[in-house]
Design a protein around this nucleic acid. Structure first.
Lengths: 224, 224
DNA sequence: GTTTTTCTGGACAGGTGTGTCCATTCATGC
DNA sequence: GCATGAATGGACACACCTGTCCAGAAAAAC
């Protein structure tokens, strides 16, 4: 085969697992590449042959780290669940002086892609349409997130019904924003949200989160 | 081959194209099945072999109606564009007494799946992540929809900036709701929206659409 | 320096997908 | 009743993906 051998992906952070011999790739390398492919091309395009050629490694290497393709997918799903949903829940539980500051905490989840990976979230949401198991996972995740947001409102005096309504408005609007503006450069989005956060804290606190939604919409709208 | 022959899908509505001979399937049959597969399983699973076996017809039949796979995908995309985006635009342009009635018209798009196919919309949105051409189409569609909603608000006295903000809140929340509750039974969703529409028209008109969002959230929240 | 363990390359078998060619079938027009 | 043309079935060539097996290279342990 005359195919030119692509350079091997060596690890850059050997702080963990230094006990392996003849290291060329690691399980983490497979997972990272697989996550990128999942986000950018979907589950259907997540193929072992494709991954191995991109890493410049034989397919056999994959079967050393994972039992099979399903094993890789399960690992990706676990990672998503631990990352995205937990981020939202912990941010909703952060201490805050009033509901406006609490909503502000909620928005902070979506500023740092290391906290909440929106691309991964939609990739999984899409994957769920084709897999009943995954569907159950994301339905549970959505319920858990909505519950956390609702509890956040309840902490500041809203009764259960009003808290639920506000949680749903907030969560749906956030998800919808990401669905539509998914491919907007992260720098643009971050600068907007940072601007929002600065402007928000400098304002008189309002007695409703309606104003917070309004300011958030201002911050995310297309024009400067 | 001992494979039992599945019964052929005959057309139920021969009102159009009665001039074909030896009719077993039509171009419409291929398109309808392909649309279902696109929505439920994604573009990646849209395979000619799979479609033909489901219709109980040879693969060769496909190549009579379509040039190739790309031809089918283009037809599906055209259909989506004509259906979903045009529905939203026309509903936004409907005459209304005040902004609340106008927002109410907007919501009506999403009651009837024949008007706006939410499953198709998300299938295309997902497809766009893997295809630059499709991405451009859906970005144009989102811009067109937002423009129509914004113009709707502008008709009722909102200046361009406020109209844009409200259009984005409304559209993002709607898209987010569909993204999260996508697999909720349509009857449940319809009964909620119908209840919303009834309750809405029986109320005193408010001077802001904030109240409309609030009532919409009440109508779509999980509890009765 | 040898042995052991860890990891990778290449080949095999089986499955599925695409696009094309051509003989065949069936409804329609004559 | 027969010719015409629309529509289909079946086969060919080619490509891609999965999972498995085993020989062998390279680091680690001794």
């Amino acid at each position: 085969m005359a195919q030119s051998r692509t350079p091997v992906l060596h690890r850059d952070d050997p702080e963990k697992d230094p006990l392996v011999g003849h290291v060329k790739v690691t399980r983490e390398d497979w997972l990272n590449l697989a996550r990128n492919v999942l986000v950018q091309e979907g589950v259907g395009e997540l193929k072992i042959l494709s991954l191995s050629t991109r890493m410049g490694v034989s397919r056999s290497s994959f079967y050393w780290y994972f039992k099979n393709r399903a094993d890789l997918l399960a690992a990706l799903l676990d990672e998503w669940e631990a990352r995205n949903t937990r981020t939202i829940v912990t941010h909703c539980e952060m201490p805050a002086d009033d509901i406006n500051a609490a909503v502000c905490n909620f928005f902070r989840c979506f500023v740092d892609p290391a906290l909440f990976d929106r691309g991964l979230d939609f990739a999984v949401r899409d994957w769920a349409r084709r897999d009943v198991q995954v569907n159950q996972r994301i339905e549970a995740a959505d319920a858990q997130r909505l519950e956390a947001i609702s509890a956040m409102f309840a902490r500041f005096g809203y009764d259960a019904y009003d808290a639920d309504i506000r949680a749903r408005i907030l969560y749906f609007m956030q998800i919808g924003y990401h669905a539509v503006e998914l491919r907007e450069p992260m720098e643009v989005r971050m600068s907007r949200l940072e601007g929002f956060l600065r402007g928000f804290t400098g304002r008189e606190p309002t007695e409703d989160t309606i104003e917070a939604f309004r300011v958030f919409a201002m911050a995310t709208e297309a024009r400067p």
